[in-house]
Each structure stands twice: as structure tokens, then as C-alpha cells.
Design a protein around this nucleic acid. Sequence first.
DNA 1: TCTGGGGTCCTGTGCCGC
DNA 2: TCTGGCGGCACAGGACCC
Length: 418
Amino acid sequence: MMFALIDCNNFYVSCERVFNPSLNGRPVIVLSNNDGCAISRSDEAKKLGIPMGAPIFKYKSLIKKHNIVVLSSNYPLYADMSHRVMNIISDFTPDIEIYSIDEAFLKFSGFDNIDLFTHASLMRKRILKWTGIPTSVGIAPTKSLAKLSNKIARKYPIQTKDVYLLDTEYKRLKSLRYFKLNNIWGIGKRLTRRLELVGCKNALDFVNLPEKWVKSNLSIVELKIQQELKGIANLNLESFASKKSIATTRSFDNPVSDLYKLKERVSTFALSCAEKLRRQNSISNIMIVFIRSNFFRKDLKQHSCSRVVTLPYPTNSSFVLNNYALKAIEEMFEPNISYKKAGVIVTSLLPSDNYQLGIFENEDYRHKPLMKTIDRINLMYGDKIKLANQDLTKKWKMKQEFLSPSYTTKISDIIKIK
DNA sequence: TCTGGGGTCCTGTGCCGC
DNA sequence: TCTGGCGGCACAGGACCC
């Protein structure tokens, strides 16, 4: 039994290139929301020294000097492409866990008579041919080792032909010696620092630490990782677990220090959460509301605060969530602070269909059909219905200066063949 | 001037009740 | 009735992932 990790190379950039081949061979970066920082880079852009998450304003001159193509993110396009890729992958094994928009874990059990290298090569060739997206595949006895194998395939595309099969003890030890601590899935900055303090330099050093020490000084999570790297499968594919929380959070393009404006924004976040809940037929018990000043501005007074609101009954009503979110904001707000970011997270989710109202629960029975109607109208006419405290005239627009067309999802943007 | 968003999971702390 | 120890819980914060 083997696991595989398939990963789309530079996914967002690759999506853009599918529909705009003139981007091939050129340095390209895709920006985060609000055009803040680089979240996807072509190999050419990486070579020029644009790091992951680079704030774009710091790299203006480099971008100009090398004529780097800069694009705003186009999430509907990426989501659609992701869906196509995952569909093709499903043809190659029934056991698939979609791990993120551009990654999936696969399990090959009962594939004893099949050459997995050939099988995986066939899969990535078909994805490339049918969608235009290049991928890399790592195959190994555990998920953590499959992650590392994937990195090898990605780093040495010529030697591996984009597929690396880690199937011997020799390859395992060689790989572990090769990788630094922070290349291990689940070991970040902080753990790397702690492990270096006890003399670890590479992944193999970590694997050789006594299990007892790992469990008592780190945690059960790191112990599992260690076992996985030893080749003992500890993690299985996650079955389509339904979401445990839903969030809507945003940075503001201009700092907000006015309570009224802050409430107006947070109201929008609460409504967005309520809509997302209704879309997946869930209700929530607990809402978390937070506001935060700009922590990059060390010269300004900082304030960061969050409130956990336990709702009187689980709900997905826009009115109820909105009211409690606004109350939380009023409690937390401090004058003379430049707030840069705020958000609403709903958690402790339950399915809405089989929920029975209890004795003390008093959701207004008129909310449910009203919400349905609001959702339908907003879907048909594009967010026409708002609550009274939402600003009707002002549009909070996301900065998207370099947006590509929605090639696959908007009929007006469908590519024209000349 | 300008530094993302959406997730999961763990941990420290303070409080409560046994 | 008082006290200390301890488990459970809620909350705030943070690490880590893509």
C-alpha cells in the first residue's frame, strides 16, 4: 500500500498561463487579495528572488527591472481549474483526499501488480493534456514521506520525470538526510528553532530523536510525524470531513478608526458567514469576532482583541449573527486606534435540516423563509438586499488592478478562437 | 502611502466544582 | 467549614498548513 501526493506546479500562475500562453517562459507572479503580496510565482520569478508572500511594494524596482508580469488573483478561475484536475485524478484511484486547491493525497491499495511510476506518469500526462496544468507526484509508504517525495520530484524534474517513487530504505534515509527541518510537513519556524537547539540539522536527526523526548517535549503531533517519517503509516486519508468553521476576514485598504465604519464592515462579514452557513445547510453555535490594528506599524498604538460569542441557539440567520457581531464590536472598540483588519468566524457547526427547536430556543420562525428569499434575490440580482446598518451607497472594493478575465466561469469572458 | 484569506489543531491560563 | 489538588471547560493566542 502506498500514498501519493500530487501537487500542481505554481498553480495560480499555471492557470493564468493556460489561457494566456504569452506568459510562458516569462517571470509571472499572482498577488493575494487587495494586491498585497505574491502568493504564486513562476519558476522564472522564483529565480529572480521573489520570495513567497513578498509584499509587492518592496519589489517594485525588481519587477520593473526584469519586466515581471504581475496579476491579481482570480479565484473563480482557479477553483474551476482545480475541479477539473481533481476529476481527472479520481479516474486513477478511488481513494483521494483533496487537501487544498492545488494538492491531493491518493492511496494506492490493491495496486500490487501495477507499476506506480507508470501509473502516476500517465495521470500527470493526462492532466497536462486535458487542462494544461503541470503537476508533480511523490509516492511513498506514508503521507509525510509522500510530501517529501513530492518535493524531490518538483526540485529535480529532469532526473525524476516529475514523479518520484520512494520505495526503498536507502531512498528514505537519503531523502531524510537531504531535507532541512523546516521542509518537513508540520515543522515550521518555531519547532525548527527548538529542534536546532538540541542539535538537529536535518530531517534524519529529527527522526533519530528518542520518541520519549519528542512526546514529552513537543507533542503527540510531532510524534506522529516522526513515525510517519520512519515509514510507519500513522495518518490515513481524511474522509470528506465537513468543515468545522467558516470565516470571513479582511484587511482594509485604508485603516478604520471610526466605530460606525467598523460596524458597517463587520456587519458585512457576519452576513457573509450567515450566507456561507446557509449555502452548506449548517447552523452555528459560536461566533468569534476580532479586530486588529496594523502590526507592521510599530510607530502606532496597537490594539488586537477578539470575542467569543456563544449564541443563545444555533442559527444561520443573518439578523441574529449581525446583532451579536455588532454587540461584540461595541464592547471591543477603542477610540484612537487605526484598525487594519477584522473578521467573523462561526464555529461549532451543526446540520440545519434535522435541527429541532428546544424549549428555551426562540429563533423567530419568520427568519428562515425570509433568509431563503434574500439568498435567492441576491443570487439573481447580485447582492441587492442589505441590512439597515450596511452602507447602501459605498462600495468596499477589493483592490484588483491586474485581474485576468474569468475565462471559464463567466460567459462574457469565454475565450474567443480566431 | 502600500504586508492575504481560510482553515485545523494545540497550549497556557483562569475559573469552577468535586 | 476551610483548604489544596485536580479534571474539565472556556477562552485567547498562536503555530502551522495551503
